[in-house]
Nucleic acid binder design. Sequence first.
DNA 1: GATGGGAGTATTGTCAACAATTTCATGTAA
DNA 2: TTACATGAAATTGTTGACAATACTCCCATC
Lengths: 238, 238
Amino acid sequence: MAFQSVCQSQEPVTIADRLFQDLRSSILEGSMPAGKKISEPELAATYGVSRGSLREAIGKLENCNLVTRKPNIGARIVNFSIDQLMEIYQIREAMEGMAARLAAKNMTEQELLHLQELLKRHQKAIKEPGKSGNSHLKHDPDLDFHFCVIQGSKNERLVRMLCQDLYDLVRFYRFRLNPGFTPKALREHELIVEAICRRDGEMAEVLMRHHIRASRNRAQIQLESMTPEELGQREKPA
Amino acid sequence: MAFQSVCQSQEPVTIADRLFQDLRSSILEGSMPAGKKISEPELAATYGVSRGSLREAIGKLENCNLVTRKPNIGARIVNFSIDQLMEIYQIREAMEGMAARLAAKNMTEQELLHLQELLKRHQKAIKEPGKSGNSHLKHDPDLDFHFCVIQGSKNERLVRMLCQDLYDLVRFYRFRLNPGFTPKALREHELIVEAICRRDGEMAEVLMRHHIRASRNRAQIQLESMTPEELGQREKPA
DNA sequence: GATGGGAGTATTGTCAACAATTTCATGTAA
DNA sequence: TTACATGAAATTGTTGACAATACTCCCATC
């Protein structure tokens, strides 16, 4: 049960849908330069579709916060700053804290087993650093864990808001960072799972918030030591 | 500084924008029946625009969670259940709790004065119940208060997520409810403002979460005593 | 040399027609 | 009577052309 497969499960039935998913992947993977202006005629020609379909796809990307649009001017790939990333961490702290609280209350026994299973795999993976060299690019264990907890909240809208809208942005940035999945982070995951399994929602929320704050600090330290080039900030300001 | 004027400030420059805002108001005010299917040719004719522009507006409404769309089938005005409203309260509890914490840290002295000013007006208004008969329909003091705090968080994305995406749904439902602005709620507001003015973020968050939980309970009690007709659930299921 | 205006180009917004899909109604067979 | 197949009507998805707006480059003026 991969992260992507559940959150973005509906396969494209319409041209605009397929375009949307293709463009979304390209943006998240970084093959479309951050901050670059989108030329509608050019992109439409590249993908061999009409401008109308492309515009609809761009509209969806705008909803995902992956592009910004100005009337009569055009759309740009997002290129958000470290400050904006920190804003997202604050929001995640609040929402995922709540998700952990709800998960402790609402997860089924089967889901608890699945979560513990996941944790064991991560524990094993982190002891064998050979294989997990760059596999995090396609399958991030940290995201898998968070997604599992979020799903467990059983709050449909919370799941949508986090997985669809917010985590795209997380992945957008994470792709440009080193894997944030350290032994320390794993230990935090373990404590969260323990609290959830005890059905201790209060503690699960506290621990999840602590974990996300810690991740935030780790990311901030890492980011501040990087140059703009390393960050892939190949923006082309207007 | 009205709620609407700040959160949805940009005036329509394009036909699709104007359409979007018109439709959004119609849906929130209830003049478009909840759950009703949208007929593209019919609506386009009503507003005297092409289907293309209408479809773009519908796309924006979908992003605001005010309509749902299925490929090759069409769009429907949302008609969400009490359970879904409760989900939204949970999300608000988490996000606005964080907003209150941040507001205590980041609000300027001037903003604090404005907030206290607002509170005084509400205190006065609640003592003179004559005038505030149904004025809450257009200018809800409770929403004004919450908006003021959210703005004070200085977290741009948090503001957008709450004001643009989530509060539309709150207003959608609130329009069908009695005014939730009771003396009890006002007292809760007072306590929150006190904490924010003391720059006590921890306490502000606790109080805000308590307030939203209490609002949730008040709404739930009220909703459970209402018939589907009173709720305006004039849905026309597929 | 810098600034402002204006024609020309390119891009975005809008529209109406065409294609694909779904829905509804009718008729037939079990 | 019910169930299913079939075809017509309506609706949505897609496209290319036209209109409106923004950008660019050049030239005149200060």
